[in-house]
């Protein structure tokens, strides 16, 4: 039960890991991605990507600006132009 999550910026690969769920701030509303999500592509608005390492853990917030998210067979890929990590 793991979703492969990748967060990429032009400068580097920020994250590439197995997580439980990721909530992405899509242009038309937030959406959560679990393992086995149907192929999906959306632009994202500026906001926080919430990464749930496991079903019970508190989410980790990663601020992203400008980009889009793609869900495919390999998992979720978020391409963002800017990432602010706390």
């Amino acid at each position: 039960m793991a979703l492969h999550f990748e967060l990429v910026t032009p400068a580097r690969l920020v994250r590439s890991e197995e997580v439980h769920m990721v909530v992405v701030p899509g242009a038309e509303g937030e959406f959560g991605v679990l393992e086995g999500h149907a192929p999906f592509m959306s632009t994202i608005r500026d906001g926080a990507v919430q990464v749930y390492k496991s079903a019970t853990s508190a989410p980790e917030m990663i601020q992203v600006r400008g980009g889009f998210a793609e869900v495919g067979d390999t998992g979720l890929t978020v391409l963002a132009e800017h990432v602010d990590e706390d």
């Binding site: 149907a38 192929p39 592509m41």
Partner: peptide, 22 residues
Amino acid sequence: DTGAVVEYEPGEEEILEALLPR
């Protein structure tokens, strides 16, 4: 092409339009 139907949000054209400058 895996043949899977990809869902686009908002639409294919809007995404492409946002994507091109990037």
